[in-house]
Each structure stands twice: as C-alpha cells, then as structure tokens.
Nucleic acid binder design. Structure first.
Lengths: 211, 211
DNA sequence: TCGGGATGCGCGATTATTCACAACGGCCCC
DNA sequence: GGGGCCGTTGTGAATAATCGCGCATCCCGA
C-alpha cells in the first residue's frame, strides 16, 4: 500500500531501510493515528528492533513529518497542474478524476488528514496549508458560468470542499464500503463506479441552472 | 457538546455521575479515538479519580459501548421515520435535512464512526449494522423516476453513501473548515450554507436526466 | 580498521485495572 | 429517636504492561 512511492534511486535496487521504515510508518499512522501507533509495531513490520529506528529518524515526531512530506509531495502535483491553465469545466472534471485515481492508488494521505482533522492536533495546519489553501488563493481566472453558479451565492469554496470530501471520505470509509456493498473498495470495478458517480454529480451541478 | 442528550429522568435534577462520565467519554472518544483516550482524562473532566469510573462501568470497553449505545439510539430515529411512508423526492430531501441538523447538533457520532472506519477495528461492524444496513434492506417501494436514475445504473447505494459522506465528512473535517473558510463550522450561518449546498446538489441530481 | 547500523538493556512516564478502605445515606429494629 | 447495618460511591496505593527514548556495545562490509 505504501510500497511504490516516489523513489529517487535508480529503481531496480532494493529500498533502503529508511524507506522501508517510511512505508511501514505511513500505513500505521494512516490506520491508527499518531499517538495510537507504537514505534515497536513499526519496527516489527520492518523486521528490526525499535531502537534501530533512531538510526534513521530523530524521534517519533520526525518520522511522522517525513511520512507527511513524502505524501504531500505526491499529492500536491495535480492541483498545480490545474492552475497551469484556464479553469474550465473539462479541466475541473479531469482534475477531479486524477485526484480520485490518486487516492485510490494510495489512501494514506486522506486517512492521515482525517486523523489530524478529528483530533485537531498541531499536524492539521500543515496539511491544510499545503493541500487546500492553494485552492482558495486568489485565482487566475475562472471561466464559464458553471462554476460561478456557486460563486455568486457564496457557496463556491463550500462546493470545492464538498467534492473533495466526497473523494476523501470514500477512502477513509473504505472498510464500511467493503461490508455494505460486498466489494473490494479499492478494486478496479469499485474505482469505475465511484468515478462514474462523481462525474454524474459534477455534470449535474454543471448543468443545473438554479431551481 | 454531549450535554443535552436523551434523559429519562424528570429533567430538572442534576445529571447522575454515570451520565457525566458518558458525556465526557463521548467527547473524548470522538476526538481522539478509542485507544488514544485515557481513562484518567475522562475522570479529570468529570472531576473524580480514574478508579472511581469502575464503580459505574466494568472497564474501558464497556464505557465505549455505553457511549455508542446512547448515540445510536438518537441517530437511528430519522431513518425509521423515512421508511414509514413512500420514499418520494420531497421526503428524501426532508430526511437529508434532518440528518444534517442532527449531526450539527452533535458531531460525535460521525467522529466515532470515522475513527472506527479508519482503524477498521471491531467497533466498525456494529456501527454499520445499526446505521447503514437498514438503508439497503429490501425496500418497501421506491417511487418517482428520480432515485431510479441511479438504480438502473447500479449506482444507487453508492449515491446514498455519497450523500451520507457529504454530511458526515463535513463534521469530521470541521477544524479544517474553521481555518479555511474563517467561520465557526457549527454556527447557524455555516449550517444554512451547508444545507443550501446539499439541497442544491440533491436537486441537481433529481433534475438531471442523464447526459 | 573504521564506522554506520543493528541490538540488548534499562530508565521514566503513562496506562488500565485491582484492592482495601473511608465517607455517607437510607433502612430496619429496638 | 437512636444505634447498628449495608449498599453506593468515592479514594490512594499498588501492579503489570506498554511506550518513547538514551546508551553502551557489537557486528559486518568497505
């Protein structure tokens, strides 16, 4: 789940111990949250003893920050791409699809963010600043009447967050989907269904001209 | 936040110690999750020492179950009401509004559920069974073409879950909304905005007849 | 031989849980 | 009405487990 992240190394060689620690820690932090994750468990997954972790990371907090950094690097890319051009309906649609696929490929960032938001701890702010704040920075230009549907009602930022929540909460609620819908929530079939649903919603919003 | 729950007692008298423990525990479990919540902190909020908790609850797990029970009793009511009649667009709309208001009034159930889903622990199943499973039980009758928009594409349960996620993730992401939108996410103004947004989405879906 | 990395040991803090015991209120019986 | 009694609710002390983390040591490959 956290295995095939960005790697600067030439690809074929086996990952360094530090990377394997990051992988294990990412999964555990995402699953149980910061304080409920024990370094002993991280070490167990890597196959070393817990004091060995300190050869690679200063302490638990530093390990968490490193995990966060690696995730944020991956996930802030699509938005920067969106803003490299006019914000049309089509490109918003494409951006949303990219995000959905990305969270399906690695659900851990959504889970980490959800843990942070729930406990309102100090980690929350960095995540907000790096993931969402850029969305509401003074925009280059917003074109088309579609998105301005919300703009003039003051609902636009709320709508943006709503679609984000739609994507991320699917991932954070995945175990529920498995049991309720009887389907692997991260399988190809489920991905197609979620994409189709979100697109339907988005198109409906685009075509809706007010009651 | 967890103060004015259902009370069988004549109302005016001060709440029992057990109730005050439940209130404190509910807030803490919802904020930090099960294992990150310490009984010492619960006891502190009540104003007693932690061993005293054992006079009212067998152990930590039993306390958690009691908290859950009280919440589920409150939150499963609206759905039962929905199913006491034809499932028309108007009544679905009304049901959704009720749910939104309920989660705004007490965000703790959504938070508890989110913690459970994230860690996929044993608490998840009971929540699913009591909150969501009834939604997908063989229905009495679904009327109107609106909802069947999803039905014949096999997306209907997904759509139901999507709107639920929309409501619940707003609550679990509340700290983010406070910082991003600069507004108390549980204030009256925010509630109106979220209601308006969700209604807009729902109407858009109702009126959308396929691209 | 040198040094990065793994280890065993152990300290101090926190945690859930148990237990013996004290305060207190009501209740029966004389 | 008063004295003994008991059940409820509180307490401090103690226990065993777990955790983050520091330290001295050792191993192994360059």
């Amino acid at each position: 789940m956290a295995g095939m992240e960005s790697q600067a190394v030439p690809s074929d060689q086996s990952p360094t111990t530090a990377d394997r620690i990051l992988d294990a820690a990412e999964d555990l932090f995402a699953e149980k949250g910061y304080s409920a994750t024990s370094l002993g468990e991280v070490a167990d997954r890597v196959g070393i003893r817990s004091p060995s972790l300190y050869n690679h990371f200063k302490n638990k907090e530093a390990l968490y920050q490193a995990v966060l950094e690696r995730l944020l690097a991956d996930f802030s890319a699509p938005l920067m791409e969106l803003e490299n051009g006019p914000v049309t309906n089509d490109r918003v649609m494409y951006w949303l699809e990219t995000i959905v696929r990305q969270h399906h490929a690695n659900p851990n960032l959504a889970r980490l963010l959800q843990h942070a938001a729930l406990s309102g701890g100090p980690h929350t702010n960095e995540l907000i600043d790096r993931l969402f704040r850029p969305m509401f920075a003074p925009r280059v230009e917003i074109e088309g009447q579609s998105i301005s549907l919300f703009e003039d009602t003051g609902l636009q930022p709320w709508a943006v967050m709503a679609f984000n929540n739609l994507v991320m909460s699917y991932v954070t609620m995945a175990p529920m989907y498995r049991d309720l819908l009887g389907q692997d929530p991260f399988g190809e079939e489920a991905l197609e269904k979620q994409l189709s649903l979100i697109k339907t919603l988005l198109v409906a919003v685009f075509e809706y001209k007010g009651s």
